[in-house]
Simulated assay, not measured.
Amino acid sequence: MLLWINGPFGGGKTQTAHELLRRLPGSVLCDPEHVGFGLHRMTPPALRGDFQDLPAWRQGVYEVLDLALTGHAGPVIVPMTVVEAPYFRETVGRLRERGHDVRHFTLLATRETVLRRLRERGFGHAVRLVAGKDAPLRRESFALSRLDLCLERLREEEFAQHVWTDRLTVAQVADHIAAACALTLAPNTDGPLRGRLRRAWTGARHIRFD
């Protein structure tokens, strides 16, 4: 089974994916961004755009996930924002046509909630301390530039099932996804402090400098 976690940038995909990985025995996480990062590094900086526009990215994601689903016995977790319907069909659609059990979830929230989460992730706290709470989110400029498009497109029926997360914790979102897939998660034993530290560490591990 593949669990594809979609949603706007800053919507909680990575945190939710790692919560599922932590509590779902036998699961693995396959991040399609790594395919895109590799393609970017092979491309002269002046020619770099959205790596999802490259057919090589869509084909590579399909082939790697097909391999993972064929060769791995447990759930495969994929956190990835995809808002272009043709690209969605080339990845999620083709995997389903191949006969794989693909469960797709879009994590949604209000614009205000997503903006708050963008400020809080990565170096957001440090930026606010140094430059003030209204400082531009320079490291999140791409996410901000795509936010309204993501929120509009991902509400479409093609990107169901939708999960509104404004009032849910990461653990509750993971619980919801697991229940929808008839999967049993290990109990969440994190207290508030340990949960915050775990999420901070997950966010720090995914900060990119290039």
Rank of each mutant, 00 (worst) to 15 (best):
R117N: 04
C150L: 05
E97V: 12
D148N: 03
R194F: 11
E19N: 08
A179E: 06
L137Q: 10
Q15I: 04
R103A: 07
P187T: 03
R146P: 08
N6T: 02
Q15D: 12
A171K: 02
C150Q: 12
V78E: 00
L118C: 08
P44M: 01
R198D: 08
L129D: 11
A171G: 13
K13Y: 03
L193I: 05
F142M: 14
R119S: 06
I207F: 04
R139V: 09
H34G: 04
E158T: 05
R22W: 04
G191E: 14
D166E: 07
G49H: 14
A109Y: 02
L183G: 09
R111T: 07
D175V: 01
L193S: 13
L21C: 08
E156I: 09
K13M: 09
K133D: 07
G93M: 10
T169D: 02
Y62V: 02
D175L: 01
L185H: 09
V92W: 01
T106W: 01
W164A: 09
L185T: 11
R198E: 08
R119Q: 10
A73L: 06
A73K: 13
P32T: 05
N188D: 10
A126T: 09
R119A: 10
R155G: 14
I177N: 03
D175S: 06
R155Y: 03
D148Y: 10
G124N: 07
G195E: 08
H72C: 04
R138N: 14
R96K: 14
T184H: 14
L95G: 07
T81P: 12
G71K: 15
R23C: 14
L154Q: 01
W201G: 07
H40I: 11
T70F: 00
T91D: 14
G132K: 00
E156G: 09
K13A: 15
A73M: 14
A171N: 06
L197C: 09
A179H: 10
F9D: 14
F51I: 13
F37N: 04
D53L: 06
K13H: 05
C181D: 10
I207D: 00
S145F: 04
A160T: 03
P32M: 11
G60I: 00
T113H: 07
R103H: 06
A131Q: 14
L149H: 05
E84G: 03
G7P: 06
L193C: 15
G11E: 01
R139T: 08
G60R: 03
R22G: 06
I177T: 09
S27F: 06
T14R: 02
E97R: 12
A109L: 02
Q59F: 07
A179L: 08
H18L: 06
M80I: 02
D166M: 15
S27E: 06
A186N: 13
F88V: 15
P192E: 03
K13L: 08
N6Y: 05
W164C: 06
P8A: 13
H100F: 06
H40V: 05
A68D: 10
C30V: 15
A174R: 00
